[in-house]
Amino acid sequence: MTTPTLVAPREVFGKTLLYMGRKDPRIVVLGADLNKSTGAWAFMQEFPGRSFDLGIAEQNMMSMAAGFAASGKIPVTTTFAVFGTGRPYDQIRLSIAQPRQNVKIVVTHAGLLTGEDGMSAESIEDIALMLALPGFTVAVPSDGPETDAVVRAVLTMEGPAFVRLPRAALPVIHRDGFSFRLGKAETMRPGDDVAIVACGALVAIALAAAEHLAREGVQARVVNLATLAPLDEEGLAQAARETGAVVTAEEHFIRGGLNSVVSQALAARAPVPVEAVALRSYGESGKPTELFEKYGLTPANIVAAAKRAIARKR
């Protein structure tokens, strides 16, 4: 196997935002003193008049974004995942979600991949928070090319959207210019013994797990679920029916994230055994690889979960 190229999704976001900003003058960018870290800096340098750094004031940023949207602009708010979801949650709910304002929230530094900054910075609840808002599009891209596609898609759709990115670089698993559809599950690898449904950084890890399983004679399908809302219920049900067992894999607390939405959809449409690879506690400081090891987000954890799911098939 060749070593995959590593690309930081937040850097891709910065480039795509600049590209889209050049094409669409309605795009304005709001930040909260983390613009050099999120990727927004390039846009802010080129378009100072359409850029608003609010300092460390995320609640103000979200309500202001709603005002921009109500005036026909396409505001993009950027900060770290914890400060872009939990901190200004009521502002997002009241001023963005309920009136369906066309605000795009793009957060970086989500999950354990934030590493050394530790527990406070490692957002592991943000997907749950955003999925709890009716009508919000929630996307978790798995690599650089998919980040580009997701950012383009949310900037050209109407309505509130949330995009979750990590701090770290991720292996590139999509070809540039691959065909992306918001709201569609994507089969990354065929297989009929078990389906591994993953999002974000866990998709590449799921692919590694599937290779391992293949060496043991187990054919695992890998499904990349980059859009958690709206949910591709039919795509998921089909994968469940064709494989009979599902593993979900995510860099998020076990409740309220990928495992919850997938289990909920399958319980209604195609009940099969579902095993989870997800976080069960808060994290801590450490190197991302060490944290994935300690908190159970490795290919080996997925392999074990796949075997448990298959064993539960009737």
């Binding site: 460390i56 914890v82 400060f83 901190r87 050394e116 900054d117 530790g118 527990m119 406070s120 910075a121 801590e284 400081s285 450490g286 190197k287 060490e290 944290l291 300690k294």
Partner: peptide
């Protein structure tokens, strides 16, 4: 051991460190 895995002294202060009163990291 600062910022290393399994350490008592975390990236942002946390009350598991002797002498630390406040678990912080989100400003304000």
């Amino acid at each position: 051991t600062f910022r290393r895995i399994d350490s008592r002294i975390q990236g942002h202060t946390h009350i598991k460190t002797p002498g630390v009163e406040f678990s912080g990291g989100s400003l304000g």
